[in-house]
Structures are given as C-alpha cells and as structure tokens.
Design a protein around this nucleic acid. Structure first.
Lengths: 248, 248
DNA sequence: CGGGGGGTTGATCTCCTTCAATCAACGTGG
DNA sequence: CCACGTTGATTGAAGGAGATCAACCCCCCG
C-alpha cells in the first residue's frame, strides 16, 4: 500500500505517449489546455485496486502506461474479466456516479485522471471529446461482442489461441516487430488472469498452453515469453478466419 | 421472402412510440424535422435477415416495433448472439462501412431507417444525437459486459434464470404489470435462439427450463407463456444479488 | 393425410472442472 | 547461506455438467 509521495509524473499533453489515441486525441490545442487544467497523474502498483465496484467514482481518466483489468465478481467469488485496459484506454463512465466494475492494476500503472464533474462539463462543451469517446466506446463494444463469441462458443484450446492472437496483434501494432513473420511477446497476464478472461480454470489454461506448445503452435521461454512461428496457424487454432485484420 | 409493397408505415416523429428512448430522444423539434427528412420506415417479417454480416451498410436506424437479434457465426456454423434488439434500440455503427454482425428479425419488425451518410452528417451537426448515441452505446456496453459474466461463469441453470429475469424486468418496465409481485410475460425467443444467446445447446435450454418449472421457480402455459411467482427467487437462481435494480 | 418446425426427453460421451501433489523462482529472516 | 513460506505454474486422477445423438410429441398448415 505504498503511497509514493514522489508520484509527480508531470508532463505536458504535447509529449504524452497516448496523445493521439486517448479521449483527447481529437482535441485542438485550446481544448487541450482546458483538459490540462483539470488533469492530474496518479500511479498504482501492480496488484493495487484502482476502483472498487460500487464505490463512488471520483474521477475518470486514461491509462497512460501499464495494464489494468476490468472485472466483475459474484458473491460466491466467481470472477469474470470484462475488459483489458491498455495504454490510451478510458476508465469510467461519464454520467454515472458509481463504478460498475473493479479496476485492478496488473502491472505498475500510470493514469491520467480528470475529476468527474469538470470533465463532464468540459465534454458537454467540446464535441471533440464526446465524439472521440463515442468512437472508443463503439470499439469497446465490438471487442466485448467478439469476446462473447469466445466465451460462449469456443473450446478451451480456441479460447487460449484467441487470447494469444489478440495479444500478438496488439504487440505487433505497437512494436511493428512482425519481421520474418515471427511474432514475439510477453504475456501481460498470469494464468489465473487469463482464466478469468476466458471463463476457464487456471489449470485448463495451463494445460492448453502446454498443448499448443507441444503441437508447435507457439514456443515458450520461461512462463511468459511467447514466440509465434506462424500467425496463420495460430488464427486457425483460434477458430477465426485467417487474414483477420492485422492492419486495423 | 414476401416483399410487401404496402409497407408504408408513415407517421410523424411526434407520435412515434419510441420517441423518448431512441437516438432522437433528446432532439429539439427543428432537429426532429431534419431527421424526418432522411428517415423512412421498413418492415421485415419474422425470420427475415435485416443485415448480413460483411455487407455494406446502406442505413442505420432504430427498432420501432418487434424484436431482432445480433449474431456472430463461425465458419463451422457455431453461432453466438451478441445482442438482442428491442424497440428503441439502434442498429448500425456510424463511421463503419460494413456490417459486423447478422441482424435477423425474430418477430415481425418495423425499423425507422436513416440513410447512412446523411445521418452521419446530421450527427456531426447536432450534438443531441451524438450525445444520446453515446449514452445508448455505453448502456449496450454495460449489457454486453454483464452478458460476458453470464457466458463465462454461470451454470446452465443460472444462465436460463438470468435470461428470464432480464426479459421479466424489461416487460415489467414496459407494462408495469408487476401487480401482486406476479410477473407474466411471453418468451420472444425460440429455444434455439435462447441457446444461441446463452452459449448452450437447445436441449440444455429445454431441460433447464423444465427443471425450473418442476422446482416451482416459474410456471409455464404452453411453451412460451411464463409466470414468475417470486422474482426474488428467480434472481437468486440467476446468481444475482437480489434487489438488482427493478427501477432502472 | 403427410410433413415440418418447435419442443421435450433419454442415453451416452467428452471436455472441462475439481481436488491434489509437485515444482521452480524468489524473498526473507535466522 | 540455508530453511521456510509464498506465489505462479504444471501435471495427474477422478468426477460431473453439458454436449451429442436420437427418438418422439404436439400442433399447425398445406
């Protein structure tokens, strides 16, 4: 629960790594200045809970760096991840007072926060923000619906392959390291988190990853470092049509 | 495939049954007039496909009456419903050329359609529309995420109970017929459609409905007419915390 | 009368869960 | 430096929830 007092991550929006992808992506310089005045950065350690489901939302904001998860939990403890928050993703829902999900940092995390009320006021005045938020929300809705197919209809093996290909795709779009068709990345999630994402048990996750390794679909170094020798193959295993985007 | 030529459902927006809930909910009268100029009604019969996944989207629009489903299908035929479209729900995604899902009418259906380009132009000019669409999209995202928990973590029995309570709740909010705590409604879906919604087989759906009936959680008249003697009980069976809204 | 769509029920199979043991990596304090 | 506990992961054995395959019913309609 270390509350580092030296968490001043002060920087100007112009230098911000997520400047062109976050809610502020379409803002003009004057709009950015207004955002600048109500923003503040906040750091979380891996494992820390950012927001508790049901709690009053003090702020909304963007993930600047690190990874967080959005999860829902039943009274008996069953949990389902309903979103994976990567840099530039938005946290919080304008127009709602209380959080609907737990937000947990899975790695060290930096958030760019806006106090809720000022942000909502600003949003109502600047269509660029509202427009970008609509765009992002529609993307998230698509992602959620794709995930519904994974959860409802895919086998354990297909689920794992689906998760791996999503992570691989994301990493490829960031590092554009698809040289030689070889994709390499680190799993940002524990086996348990993957299980919560996929609606499986962690044992099944472990078994299926081992199976994919034995079958040569992926290579593993250590527990987390993955190499995909043939992306087409992985997509087949995921039950997706090959081709599947890559350039989105 | 009957293409009824007498499908003129002409009416003014003022009389529209979904006037206060659809994308146009927040429009002023002058904005409504503009929408009026680009709108047209279209009818579909039960079973007809409204939009094919992958096809060019000619229009976006609202469900006026009837029920439609949003489904995704894998090459081998497995299908997952990713959305249930009720009156006032919006179909189509501004800013995207091709449909991502199949839209199928499960009952006779009336849609209020807008040609895509004019609608997008109008949306960019009138923040009321964009704002309402954001609101609706956020609601859909919440619904999708709640469904992810159902798909990923609930048992077959809980899944059925969840679906029934959602339908019951919706019907209650429409007909406010919660007199005596007795809820009565008709299932708008076949067993197969329910299975596609819940990530189950239709046999399992049938068995679990029978089981809930034997256990007195619901009463059935015919195959579709359902009575819920005790909503609390149904919510327990769904694995939801009791209370659960009812007044949203 | 035949036929087809929607639904129920039964028997069997299988994939995933559950329970459990084991392991490797890591940090911590004696 | 090593015993110890912890956390994340792998693997095995057994059991069960739901899928699969199949028969049959009901009802409407041509």
């Amino acid at each position: 629960m270390l509350n580092d007092p030296s968490l001043s991550v002060t920087q100007t929006c112009g230098d911000c790594p997520i400047r062109h992808r976050a809610v502020c992506a379409r803002c003009e310089t004057d709009e950015l200045e207004q955002l600048d005045q109500i923003k503040y950065y906040r750091k979380y350690e891996a494992g820390q809970t950012v927001v508790w489901s049901g709690d009053r939302m003090e702020f909304v904001g963007s993930v600047v760096s690190g990874i967080a998860t959005l999860t829902q939990t039943m009274e008996d403890g069953r949990t389902q991840m309903v979103g994976l928050l990567l840099p530039s993703d938005f946290v919080g829902r304008p127009g709602r007072g209380n959080a609907a999900y737990d937000v947990v940092a899975t790695t060290d995390l930096v958030m760019c926060c806006f106090r809720k009320q000022p942000f909502e006021d600003l949003m109502n005045k600047t269509p660029h923000i509202a427009h970008r938020l609509l765009e992002m929300t529609l993307d998230e809705l698509d992602a959620a619906r794709e995930w519904m197919l994974v959860l409802g209809r895919k086998t354990a093996r297909e689920k794992i392959a689906s998760l791996l290909s999503i992570i691989a795709r994301r990493d490829a779009s960031l590092h554009l390291r698809s040289a030689e068709g070889q994709l390499v990345f680190d799993l940002p999630l524990t086996r348990e988190a993957m299980a919560d994402y996929l609606g499986l048990t962690l044992e099944t996750v472990s078994r299926q990853i081992s199976a994919l390794r034995k079958d040569g679909v992926i290579h593993l170094e250590g527990k987390r470092h993955v190499t995909v020798p043939d992306m087409e193959r992985l997509l087949e295993e995921a039950g997706d049509d090959a081709d599947g985007g890559m350039l989105a």
